[in-house]
């Protein structure tokens, strides 16, 4: 019996890209959530405050998407090509949303129609968030591949799972956005804030529960991860942890205690959910058939990229941390206009 040795480099890159993507979802997820919030009825000055609080950091946060995409392109070119080929439409939705958002930030300060750009910012955030949901939901639903090419139709990504997942992700971003705002400023909407957080959290819960329940009906390839040891234990543990954190979060929201902890807890839920997703599909990266070992670049590329990007990532993290430190707490717009 031959012992199979798992190649280490693809795993290293899988972990790096996973962390980059997780960081993106956490950082930009908060920004997207704030964007979604801006669409809810409220005073116009709150909307402009939302834009201002993100001014110095949204771009650096968004960059993690490009970082993850760039790493993915180099390390797993087939994932980049098959994935974006299959998920063409969600990718367009994300790109258009990002254009709207960037344009709103750029033009808001110089325009006399501020309200128009805060709306464009909200719509852009909505498009990006919906695109995220359809992209990841479509990917997790499985992609039809033949001879190493995408062999499905352009709207395969629309499945009951991906739609429920999108609704869940949208409301999860809302929770993240609210908790980020509460931490950052004395958010003036305290009256409606907490009911809305609870509502969004409830929608997240039921949508994601529904998404999980439709999986067996779709002959989901990874059902055994949920039914066989050891992955089933890990997954139930993660699910339990998510439930526990959610209860703490809900308790805080109802009693309005410890608002500064809410951002941490809601990010924790995202991290746990992300970890659960990874455990649920690893080593497959384009479900159901393609594993990271099938699609990794040659070792020479993976090594070279590691030498090039490996030492840079801690530096990038350090100056992003510096940026958040400089502008993070109670950022005062009056001091900092350009």
């Amino acid at each position: 019996m031959t012992e199979t040795i798992l190649p280490i480099l693809p795993i290293v890159w899988f972990v790096i890209i996973g962390l980059e993507l997780a960081l993106y979802v956490l950082l930009d997820g908060s920004n997207l959530g704030i964007g979604l919030l801006s669409l809810l009825p409220q005073k116009e000055e709150n909307r402009s405050m939302m834009l201002h609080v993100m001014g110095p950091i949204w771009n650096a946060n968004e960059t993690w998407l490009l970082v993850a995409a760039g790493s993915l392109f180099g390390a797993f070119p087939l994932v980049y090509s098959i994935g974006l080929n299959a998920l063409f439409v969600p990718a367009v939705v994300i790109a258009v949303g990002l254009i709207f958002r960037a344009a709103s930030f750029a033009f808001y300060d110089v325009s006399e129609y501020g309200a128009f750009w805060t709306r464009a910012f909200g719509v852009g955030s909505l498009l990006v968030a919906v695109g995220h949901g359809l992209l990841f939901g479509g990917l997790l639903s499985g992609i039809t591949i033949a001879d190493g090419h995408f062999a499905g139709g352009p709207f395969d990504f629309i499945t009951p799972f991906s739609l429920l997942f999108t609704i869940g992700l949208l409301s999860a971003y809302v929770v993240l956005g609210y908790s980020a705002l509460i931490t950052k400023l004395d958010y003036a909407l305290q009256v409606e804030t907490f009911p809305r957080i609870l509502g969004a959290a409830a929608v997240t819960f039921f949508a994601l529960l529904g998404a999980t329940l439709v999986l067996p009906r779709m002959d989901y390839i990874f059902m055994e991860r949920w039914t066989q040891a050891p992955t089933s234990y890990i997954l139930y543990l993660i699910a339990g942890a998510i439930a526990a954190v959610s209860i703490v979060l809900a308790y805080n929201a109802i009693t309005k205690k410890n608002p500064e902890q809410m951002h941490f807890f809601s990010m924790l839920i995202f991290v746990l959910g992300f970890a659960g997703m990874v455990v649920g599909i690893f080593p497959y990266i384009v479900p159901p058939a393609v594993s990271i070992f099938d699609v990794a670049s040659p070792d020479a590329t993976l090594k070279f990229m590691l030498y090039g990007i490996g030492p840079i990532l801690p530096i990038v993290l350090a100056y992003n941390w510096y940026l958040h430190k400089v502008f993070g707490s109670k950022f005062n717009r009056e001091d900092a206009g350009y």
Partner: peptide
């Protein structure tokens, strides 16, 4: 992608 994607990864 093993070269082109790598270089775009460096860029980002």
């Amino acid at each position: 992608g093993s070269f082109f994607g790598n270089i775009l990864g460096f860029e980002t």
